[in-house]
Amino acid sequence: MKSFVRYTKTTLLFLLVLTVCIAVSGAFSDVESAQKRKKSSKIDPTNPCSVIYLDTKGNLAGVGDPNKPASLSYKKGRGWHPQALSANGLPKDRYGLIDWARLVRENLIKPRHALKAGVDEMPPLQMDVLIVAKGDFVDDVIYPHEMHTYWLKCEVCHPGIFIPAAGQNNMTMIGIVEGKWCGRCHNKVAFPLTDCSRCHVSPKKTSKK
C-alpha cells in the first residue's frame, strides 16, 4: 500500500514535469511562429503600392493605393497626396520619401510664410550646434538650426522640447527612438531615424573605428 502511494506520487510528479516541458517547448514554437507571422505581413517600402503612411504610433494610416482612400481627407488632399507629389519628380531620399531639405536647398519650392500678406518673416537662424554622442565610436551629431528654422518657429522647440543651451538637454538615442527630443518629429513628420548618417555626421577624433 505504501509503495503504491509512492508510485502514484512519482508518476504524478513525472506527469507534472512532462506537462511543464511540453508547455515550455510549446511556448518557444509559439514565439517562432509569431515571428513568422510578423514576417509575412511585412511591408516593403520600396514597393510603391506599399505603405509609407504610418500614424504617430507606427500603425497603418493608409495603404498607398490611390484607388483605396485611407480616409475622408483623401479627397481634399488629393492634389497633395504623397504619391502624387512623388510622381511630380521631386527629389527623394534613399528611402523614396520626399527630401524636403533638398527642396529647400535647391530652391525648388517657395512656400508662403503667412496667410496674410505683409507679415515679416524671420530669416533662418544660421547656427549649427555640435551634440556629442555618448559612447566611444559613433559619429557626433551636428544639429542645423538653419534647416529647422526655415520651417519652424523657435517656440516650437524652445523651451518645450530643448533648453536653448548646448549640452544641457542630456539626450539619449534610446530616448530619441522612444519619441523624445529629435524623435518628436523625426520618424514622424521629418526624415526617418533609419537614416542614421544624416544626423551623425561628425566623426569622433579619438577613434577611427
Binding site: 520600396t46 534610446i174 520618424n187 531615424l193 533609419t194 542614421c196
Partner: peptide, 13 residues
C-alpha cells in the same frame, strides 16, 4: 539590418 529586409537599426532594444 540597414535595409527593408530586417528590422531597422534604430530598434536598439
Amino acid at each position: 539590418h540597414n535595409s527593408p529586409k530586417a528590422f531597422p537599426l534604430f530598434h536598439c532594444n
